[in-house]
Amino acid sequence: MKGGAPQEDARAEEFELLRRIAQRERAAFEDLYSRYANILYASALKFVKEDADAQDVVQDVFIQIWDKAKLYDPAKGKPLTWALTLTRNRAIDRIRAIQRRTRLRDEFEQETFVDESAGVREALSGVDASEKGQILRKAVSQLSPQQKKVIELAYFGGLTQTEIAEKLGEPLGTVKARARRGLLKLKELLGDQI
């Protein structure tokens, strides 16, 4: 699916919706909700696993969209990827709060963080059978396992570079290099396809 006209049209419509949301148009917000709710909910669920948490995340994200639409900068990315980034960040905040709570509750569960982040292991495997899911899976499959692991732990697990290096037992410089090379490769493979 190369970046064809329908995709361009959809993006243009979404830019316009965000512009109208910035002007506090409720109809535009409801339209954007209809377009994004399922995908943002699915994305949130991939991070936080629980339906209630995912709903909380999505609600927060739409509130942010309403409040921040005027700050949206098209030069920084497409509307959908902007919304997905908001979702990821909100979900990671929630995961960290849960992890912190768990650690505080039981200091003996030192392995909790590792165990929970292990749930990230298959994050890049993907289950979306749609065309875009197939494109993404194909691109991800071309990363080295080491690049994939670093990106998984950072993006889906919310780990910092230092935490990743510690978890993998690799030098920090190696982690940095894998993150860069992995994203460069994905950028090259995905181009403007999705």
Partner: peptide
């Protein structure tokens, strides 16, 4: 690019 990884989630 990273944000697009979220699209791996099944709708």
């Amino acid at each position: 690019v990273a944000a697009r990884l979220s699209l791996l989630a099944a709708e």
